[in-house]
């Protein structure tokens, strides 16, 4: 019999420890697992490194974790949608590593695929590429980028079957499949659960092996 991965948001979030590296799916508040983020916001977990594209909006989505002062470090590509994150960085309250969005995606993918590092042209020669190793291939400059790993991933999907196979919804897919594979423990917030065998195998985006826990909205 298959392992039961279903649990409450509270039990799932109890896995998070102080100082953990946490990936959170979403782009511009689409594909963000809101109930999981809210639960993390209610917990007393601190000194978190949050890896995500953006930080939602002020006090909305991931913005809640900033309001609660649970964040030590951010790794992501775009914080201009949350002016409070911008202020917190310039006031020295949090550390931020800014990563080009495609590099963020690929570094997360690399972590899940067992690739420790790779080269990409994005940021070569710029301020964001300043401390990175540069190598030329075919006359073009590339920077060495390392995989980005996490302890926990909080992701959002439309539907799961009982094994934990996932399908997504439109542009809410974004970083979620890559993060599912990159973290040691992945918690999926889903809107619907179906029996195993009901999802078309051709439509499944995230195979169940990448999903540790499932929380129904």
């Amino acid at each position: 019999m298959a392992v039961n991965k279903f649990m409450t948001a509270r039990d799932a979030i109890a896995r998070v420890k102080d100082g953990d590296r946490i990936m959170v799916g979403g782009f511009g508040l689409k594909g963000t697992p809101f109930p999981l983020v809210r639960e993390l916001g209610k917990s007393a977990r601190k000194n978190l490194t949050v890896i995500s594209n953006d930080l939602g909006s002020p006090n909305e989505g991931l913005g809640v974790l900033l309001t609660n002062k649970q964040i030590k470090t951010l790794i992501g590509s775009y914080y201009n949608w949350n002016i409070e994150a911008v202020h917190a960085y310039y006031n020295g309250e949090i550390e931020v590593t800014l990563v080009p969005q495609g590099t963020l995606a690929e570094s997360i993918r690399a972590a899940g695929a067992g690739i420790p590092a790779y080269y990409t042209a994005a940021s070569a020669g710029t301020d964001l590429g300043r401390d990175k190793e540069i190598r030329e291939f075919g006359g073009k400059k590339y920077v060495l980028e390392q995989a980005i790993y996490a302890d926990i991933a909080l992701i959002e999907a439309r539907k799961a079957d009982r094994l934990g196979n996932l399908v997504y919804s439109k542009t809410a897919r974004n970083f979620n499949p890559a993060m599912a594979a990159a973290a040691k423990y992945t918690i999926a917030l889903v809107h619907e659960i179906v029996e195993t065998g009901e999802l078309d195998p051709e439509s499944i985006i995230t195979p169940h092996v990448y999903v540790s826990a499932i929380v129904k909205e």
Binding site: W81, I83, A85, V86, Y90, L98, G102, A122, A124, L128
Partner: peptide, 15 residues
């Protein structure tokens, strides 16, 4: 300025 974000600009310009 009051900005903190690069988004996809570097990937798009180089790619």
């Amino acid at each position: 300025g009051n900005q903190l974000g690069v988004g996809g600009a570097m990937d798009l310009i180089s790619g």
